[in-house]
Simulated assay, not measured.
Amino acid sequence: MELHTSRLKLRLIEFSDLEAIHQLHSIPEVDEFNTLGIPENIEQTATLIESWLLANEQQEVTSYTFAIETISNKVFIGLLGLKLWPKKNRRAEVWYKLQPDHWGKGYATEAVNSILDFGFNKLNLHRIQAGCAVANIGSIKVLEKVGMIKEGKCRQVLLLKSGWSDNYEYAILETDYELLKK
Rank of each mutant, 00 (worst) to 15 (best):
T5D: 00
T5Y: 01
R7P: 05
R7H: 09
R7Q: 07
R7C: 06
L8F: 05
K9V: 09
L10I: 04
L10R: 08
L12C: 12
L12T: 13
I13N: 07
I13C: 06
S16N: 05
E19M: 00
E19Q: 03
A20S: 10
I21T: 00
I21G: 01
Q23Y: 01
Q23L: 04
Q23P: 00
H25Q: 14
I27N: 05
I27P: 03
E29I: 01
V30N: 02
E32A: 02
N34R: 03
N34C: 02
L36Q: 13
I38T: 05
E43R: 04
E43A: 00
T45I: 05
T45G: 01
T47F: 13
T47L: 13
L48N: 03
L48M: 10
I49L: 07
E50D: 06
E50A: 13
S51F: 12
S51Y: 10
S51C: 07
L53D: 04
L54S: 02
A55W: 05
N56Q: 06
Q58L: 15
Q59M: 15
Q59K: 13
E60N: 11
T62M: 04
T62E: 09
Y64T: 04
T65F: 06
I68T: 04
E69P: 04
T70G: 07
T70V: 08
T70E: 10
I71T: 04
I71R: 10
S72A: 15
I77Q: 02
L79F: 06
K87N: 07
N89F: 15
N89K: 11
E93G: 08
V94G: 08
V94F: 08
V94K: 08
V94Q: 09
W95T: 14
W95Y: 14
P100K: 12
H102A: 09
G104F: 10
G104Y: 14
K105I: 04
K105R: 14
Y107D: 07
T109F: 00
T109D: 00
V112P: 09
S114I: 02
F118M: 04
F120G: 11
F120V: 08
L123M: 12
R127C: 13
Q129M: 11
A130T: 03
A130K: 06
G131T: 12
C132W: 05
I137L: 11
I137H: 10
S139T: 08
K145F: 07
V146N: 07
G147W: 10
M148R: 05
I149T: 12
E151V: 09
E151M: 09
G152D: 04
K153R: 15
R155Q: 08
L158D: 14
L159R: 14
S162Q: 05
W164R: 06
W164A: 03
S165F: 05
A171F: 04
A171L: 05
E174T: 15
D176F: 08
D176H: 15
Y177W: 10
Y177A: 06
E178R: 11
E178W: 00
E178F: 03
L179N: 15
K181V: 06
K182V: 09
